[in-house]
Write a protein that binds this DNA or RNA. Structure first.
Lengths: 146, 146
DNA sequence: GTAATACCTAAACCTGACTTTAGGTCAAGG
DNA sequence: CCTTGACCTAAAGTCAGGTTTAGGTATTAC
């Protein structure tokens, strides 16, 4: 059993954040001893899961839902699975978007590299897209960069 | 030359957003005719670039900086390049993080799939990580999933 | 001539995820 | 006894990136 200060130390999170998470219902079974929160292994486990779910871009209210489902028992397995499937699809499309943005950046880096080396901007633009070097062409096409 | 309403149509952005961008200094050379904004090809071009930069996770104030540099001319080529290099590095690490989160989700999906199919939770947890099937093992290791 | 549109501004409001503030309880140490 | 430190609460503040509102001008349509 740990106090909020100890958990704060262990996770490198301010106590205000832990109280905020509690208020948002992220620790459904959190006990108290005369008003003071007592974090058990269950809550430490929950916190680790919270950190993962946050990285996956989940909102607090969805994390609360998940925690409530966990507290409800095995009948909620399918719901939990569906939530993760939805998140997975979402992440996959996010990553695809980011890769497109990354291609745009690669193209921009190349473009400004040419200009920094003294190339003429009008001439450089004139060779787009047909005269582009191979390794940039792909980035250009994926990014539709300008 | 286009009015704000036409540009709104063309880009599928509310006029309020276009006015907001203008107020934030994203169109440094935007002209007006007796108070009314007149968007030229320069601004349409700027808007396309803005959409790209937003996808790359850039903040409005950095985009403004970039637009100001563009208006300043070729002397700012190296600055612009440096900005994109920094963004590129940032995006690459973001994508790596997201892939780790994605692995965690893959693992979670598999985990709840087993449970939904009637596996016993305690037994399932007991086989982690050594008894995991190959295709999940990698996701598990990358995600440090619980 | 008046009503509907399209434009303008400043300023208030919104959302999410926290953080900060102000004020209060309680136990241990000097 | 009284101060320090760790805990508690409710409520207000913060930040980004817009959106909404309230009020005003100018042109076109009937």
């Amino acid at each position: 059993m740990y106090t909020i200060g100890q958990v704060s130390e262990m996770f490198g999170l301010p106590t205000s954040t832990l109280r905020y998470y509690d208020k948002q219902g992220l620790f459904p079974g959190l006990e108290r001893a005369s008003g003071i929160r007592r974090f058990s292994d269950t809550e430490l486990e929950a916190l680790r899961v919270i950190e993962c779910l946050k990285k996956a871009g989940m909102e607090i209210k969805d994390i609360r839902l998940f925690m409530e489902w966990c507290a409800e028992g095995p009948s909620t397995y399918p719901k939990r699975k569906a939530m993760f499937e939805e998140r997975k699809a979402h992440m996959e499309s996010e990553i695809a978007n980011m890769n497109r943005a990354l291609d745009m950046l690669k193209y921009k880096c190349w473009f400004y590299e040419q200009l920094s080396q003294g190339d003429n901007e009008a001439e450089l633009r004139a060779m787009i897209p047909d005269g582009l070097p191979e390794e940039i062409k792909k980035a250009y096409e994926n990014a539709h960069a300008r």
